[in-house]
Amino acid sequence: MTRTKYSVALPEGVEDDRKLQRKVWAVQRLSWLIFALLLFLSLLGVFGSGGYFSRQTVAFPGGSVDVPVTARWPAPEELKVTFSPSADDRTFLVDARFHETFAIDSVDPAAGSVLSRGGRTLYVFPASPAHAVTVAFRLKTQRPGIRSYLLGIGEDVLERTVVLFP
């Protein structure tokens, strides 16, 4: 029988571990709150794959680009480019770092031509004077980490950052 603070001796092999157990129970309950917080943040999109904070719309004079801000690796993502009505051909460009961050699985509708200039890739789409046109780039994340890249419409270029969770 084991010596104990209980009113009787505990069976052999069973120790009075109430002090440790109280700590463990407290840590468990705290961790359940953290579980709930993580799920709540996930619903908000902090960890990617949908949700308010998972995407951002970047405005340019010639249109806008809806890009992922947080994403997961490896998971499919989407980048949407909306061109304002224009009588000229429209160009969406990304730099080499974009291709290190995302693989482009497909572009819908397909670009009229794809050019490479000064380390940047230009996707040229035909003019549409009457209507705005939305182009969807279906992406696949390449590797986890915090990645920055350039994107732009026409001559206007901005740098964006995406957090890719493993």
Partner: peptide, 19 residues
Amino acid sequence: GVATVLVVNGKFEEEAMRG
């Protein structure tokens, strides 16, 4: 984890049961 005593001499250890 460790073994947790839930009942001693016919009485429930309420703290352990809750934990």
